[in-house]
Design a protein around this nucleic acid. Structure first.
Length: 408
DNA sequence: AACCCGTCCAACCGCGAGACC
DNA sequence: CGGTCTCGCGGTTGGACGGGT
C-alpha cells in the first residue's frame, strides 16, 4: 500500500481544472471510457494524475450530474440517511440521483450542520443538543476514523426513540414472526434498519445511485402523474449482494412488505434475480429486486393497481395482519415524491434509452414479471455502461447491518 | 477602494480494501 | 504469501467569492 504512485510523479498539474482539460477528459472518456484511471491522463493528454481525473469526472464532468442547489426534499433525505448511515457520504449520495458524495459532504458541513444546530439538534448524534451536551467533550475529534459519526448507528438506533429520527417508522417486526422475547428486541432493531433501507431506497422518486447505471431508477411518477403510491416506490437491491447470515425468508419478507403497499401486492419469488435492463428500467411499477439465491422461485405478473409491483411470497404479511399501516408510512414520502424533480427523472430516462418510456413498457413489464427476466450484469446503454461502475451500496451495508446485529 | 472575515466548494491527501502478480 | 497497483472513500485544505466595515 502506501501512497498512490501518481503522487510521486513530477510535473503533474494540480489545482483547478481548466476548460481545456475538462474538454480533453470529457472527450476521452465519452469516446473510450475510463478503463484504468491511471492510464487516462496519458491517453487523454493531460498533465494530471489518474486520481485527479477520476475525481474530476465523478464530481463534475459526469453527464448525469444534477446541477443547482439542493431541494428541501433532498436535504431532508440527507438528514434522514445521515441519521442511519453516518458519514458514509458515498452511500448517501447513492440515494440522491445526480448528486456526488463530495457535494453532499460539503452541504452537510457547510449548511445542514448549522441548520440542525439552530434547531437544537446535534448533527452528529441527531439527538437534541440538550441530551448530548453533557457528553460533548467525549466526542472524538474529527479524524478519528474509529469513532465519531461514521459508524455510530448500526449497533444502536440513532436515538432511544426510533420515531424521533424516522417519525414514520412503525416497527413491524413483532407481528411478523413468532419470536422469543429476546429475539424480538434484536429483531425489532434489525427490522428498523432493514426498514430504513427499504424506505430510504423508495423514499425518493428519483432513487438512483448517483454513480452507476447498474441500478436503475424504478420510478414511474414521472410518467404516470396519477399513479398510485406503489408505482412510486422503487426499491434497490444490488444484484451482486446477498444477505449473509440472515434468515433470507424473514429478510425478504421484511424488505418487501416494508417496501410495498398492500394495494400492490402480487406474488413473486424469494429469489429476486430481477435486474434492470435498458428495457425494463423505466417500467412503471417495476422494481428491481434481489434478495438471495434460492432456486424454486418464479416471478408472476402482478394484477396490482396501477402497473403492478412484486412482492416476495409471504406467509406472514404484516399487511394481512393489518398492523402495519402502509398509508401512514408512505404519506410523507408520497408527498415528497410527487414534488420530486421531474426534469431529472426525464433526463435519466432519456439518457439511458434515448426515448421517453411509452405505454408499451407496461407490456414489457408484464412479460418481465411473467418470468421473462433477462439476467444481465450490465445492461447495454450505448456503451455508457462500460464506464459507469456499480456501487456496492447494498452489499456492504447489509453485511454491516447483519454483522452488527450478530454482535448484539 | 482596500481590507477583513466568513462561507462555500473543488480538489487534494491519506488510508483501507481488493485484485493481481 | 507478500508486494504492488488501483480504486474508492472520507477528512481536510485552500482558493474564490461575497458581504461588511
Amino acid at each position: 500500500m502506501g501512497r498512490h504512485s501518481c503522487c510521486y510523479k513530477q510535473k503533474l498539474r494540480k489545482g483547478l481544472w481548466s476548460p481545456e482539460e475538462d474538454e480533453k477528459l470529457l472527450k476521452h472518456i465519452t469516446k473510450y471510457g475510463h478503463g484504468c484511471w491511471s492510464s487516462v491522463p496519458k491517453l487523454a493528454g493531460l498533465q494530471r494524475c489518474g486520481k485527479s481525473c477520476r475525481l474530476r469526472w465523478i464530481n463534475y464532468l459526469r453527464p448525469d450530474l444534477k446541477r443547482g442547489s439542493f431541494s428541501q426534499q433532498e436535504e431532508d433525505l440527507i438528514i434522514e440517511l445521515h441519521a442511519v448511515l453516518g458519514n458514509r457520504w458515498s452511500q448517501i449520495a447513492a440515494q440522491l440521483p445526480g448528486r456526488t458524495d463530495n457535494e453532499i459532504k460539503n452541504l452537510w458541513n457547510s449548511c445542514i450542520k448549522k441548520k440542525l444546530k439552530q434547531r437544537g439538534i446535534d448533527p452528529n448524534t441527531h439527538k437534541p443538543l440538550s441530551e448530548t451536551q453533557g457528553r460533548e467533550d467525549k466526542v472524538p475529534a474529527s479524524g478519528d476514523k474509529t469513532a465519531g459519526s461514521s459508524e455510530p448507528k448500526l449497533l444502536a438506533p440513532p436515538s432511544g426513540n426510533l420515531n424521533s429520527v424516522v417519525p414514520e417508522f412503525a416497527p413491524p417486526a413483532m407481528s411478523m414472526v413468532d419470536r422469543s422475547n429476546s429475539e424480538n428486541l434484536v429483531a425489532s432493531t434489525k427490522d428498523f434498519f432493514l426498514y430504513r433501507f427499504a424506505a430510504s431506497h423508495e423514499s425518493s422518486s428519483s432513487c438512483q445511485p448517483a454513480n452507476s447505471m447498474d441500478y436503475l431508477p424504478l420510478r414511474n411518477s414521472t410518467y404516470s402523474p396519477s399513479s398510485s403510491m406503489d408505482q412510486n416506490l422503487p426499491l434497490w437491491f444490488n444484484q451482486n449482494s446477498r444477505l449473509p447470515d440472515m434468515n433470507p425468508e424473514l429478510t425478504c419478507n421484511m424488505m418487501m412488505t416494508a417496501a410495498l403497499p398492500s394495494g400492490s401486492r402480487s406474488t413473486a419469488s424469494a429469489s429476486m434475480g430481477l435486474k434492470p435492463t435498458a428495457d425494463n428500467s423505466s417500467l412503471p411499477g417495476f422494481r428491481y429486486l434481489e434478495a438471495g439465491n434460492s432456486s424454486n422461485n418464479s416471478a408472476s405478473s402482478g394484477n396490482s393497481t396501477g402497473g403492478g409491483g412484486i412482492e416476495l411470497q409471504s406467509n406472514n404479511s404484516i399487511y394481512e395482519s393489518g398492523i402495519f399501516q402502509w398509508s401512514d408510512l408512505v404519506s410523507n414520502r408520497q408527498a415528497e415524491i410527487q414534488l420530486g424533480g421531474e426534469p431529472e427523472d426525464l433526463k435519466w430516462s432519456e439518457y439511458l434509452n434515448g426515448t421517453i418510456p411509452s405505454s408499451t413498457d407496461l407490456q414489457n413489464q408484464t412479460q418481465l414479471l411473467n418470468g421473462a427476466v433477462k439476467e444481465e450484469n450490465q445492461f447495454p446503454v450505448d456503451g455508457l455502461s462500460s464506464w459507469l461502475q456499480p456501487p456496492e451500496v447494498f452489499g456492504k451495508d447489509f453485511q454491516r447491518i447483519s454483522t452488527a446485529f450478530k454482535q448484539i
